[in-house]
């Protein structure tokens, strides 16, 4: 199962490092990472593999939400299928 982590907000030091730490802690592998400024927002997108994840999706989401609150950015994790459904025929 693959998912996409999106971070939107103001740029600051340590966003990637903090998120990577959480992902590594629970066995989530980062497959691809890109960041850009889109429509005035710092946007980072991580493509991750949840195959060896050792906690539940809900728990991982909770941890990322907490981190997002701390860093004052929005961190969203969604299964890849929703993007494929919407953007690929």
């Amino acid at each position: 199962m693959k998912a996409i982590v999106t971070v939107i907000g103001k740029d600051k030091i340590g966003i990637i490092s903090n998120i990577s730490t959480i992902l590594a802690k629970y066995g989530v592998n980062i497959l691809d990472i890109s960041q850009t400024i889109l429509q005035g927002y710092f946007t980072m997108m991580m493509f991750v593999d949840l195959k060896n994840m050792d906690i539940s999706f809900a728990k991982l989401k909770e941890e990322l939400d907490l981190l997002g609150n701390k860093l004052e950015v929005s961190i969203i994790i969604q299964q890849e299928d929703v993007f494929k459904a919407m953007h690929r025929i």
């Binding site: 996409i4 999106t6 939107i8 691809d32 890109s34 850009t36 889109l38 429509q39 927002y41 946007t43 997108m45 493509f47 969203i76 969604q78 890849e80 929703v82 993007f83 494929k84 919407m86 953007h87 690929r88």
Partner: peptide, 12 residues
């Protein structure tokens, strides 16, 4: 592979 613009569009 889904690109950043598409991801952002869905998220927004």
């Amino acid at each position: 592979m889904i690109n950043s613009f598409e991801v952002l569009e869905t998220v927004q």
